[in-house]
Design a protein around this nucleic acid. Structure first.
Lengths: 136, 136
DNA sequence: GTGTTTGCAAATTGTTTGCAGTAAC
DNA sequence: GTTACTGCAAACAATTTGCAAACAC
């Protein structure tokens, strides 16, 4: 746990109390919070932190590649700190719960060359949809 | 082409000039328009059509299963009328171009049972990301 | 000290809603 | 004739932006 902060520090990310709190809130496994949820949890530790600051920090974490932006559904984007290990998402259509799951093989190689139309394919995003046990 | 309208009529979808125009605009291959783009093209044929009506029609087409909602990126959702044939998307990270591509196998079966955590998995959404030939 | 980050509040964007009028079946 | 659809304008939700004050390095 908490390698996120260490990694960020190692990469020379300018550290402020706000940014630290955002990184702390976001760290862990199976974490998929919306910007607003991150803000709510950050406020619990640092009452004066603003939404804009949370958005700033999240945006930077995403462009640093330390956090992945997941557009699971209609509404708000979710932020997934598990960027270092390739994984996919299993989403419950009823309650919205998200689980990280491991690929069977490498989904990137599943796209045949003749289906790449000259694109240089560098990433793949896979979302399984279904109904979770507690909603069934 | 234009099976969409026929299918809708066959299914007893109440037809109005507005709905017809939306369906016509949306029909075709490799079509991935935002609600706003649909509205713009609809206005060209039917100047007084409102955004709300376009949203209504799109929402119904989605729940009828005739059109798929694609959250390709940050901004607006895109609507894909190619719902009758299973396919995946190849998105250019630079210009945003989307191509429909065909699965190598059935991506649904790629998720091992021990990775389903009791979920009943019914659909999978795959998005390949890369750079298209003209942007490279 | 210098330059980046923060907080605030207002602006933008995308989408939904309430309701009276209108049109499809 | 009923019932569902439309347009309008206003409400809403998520996110971004501009700028002066505050802080990390």
């Amino acid at each position: 746990m908490s390698d996120l902060l260490e990694r960020l520090r190692a990469r020379g990310w300018r550290m402020t109390s706000q940014r630290r709190v955002v990184a702390e809130v976001l760290d862990g496994d199976h974490v998929h919070l919306t910007a607003d949820e991150v803000h709510a949890r950050a406020v619990a530790r640092l009452p004066e932190i603003s939404r804009a600051t949370v958005y700033n920090a999240l945006g930077e974490l995403v462009s640093l590649g330390e956090v992945i932006e997941v557009s699971t559904d209609g509404r708000a984007k979710r932020y997934d700190p598990n960027a270092h290990r390739p994984h996919q998402h299993l989403v419950c259509s009823r309650c919205g719960t998200i689980r990280d799951v491991q690929p069977a093989g490498d989904p990137l190689t599943d796209l045949p060359t003749d289906q790449r139309f000259g694109f240089t394919v560098s990433a793949v995003e896979v979302t399984y949809r279904g109904v979770c046990p507690s909603c069934a």
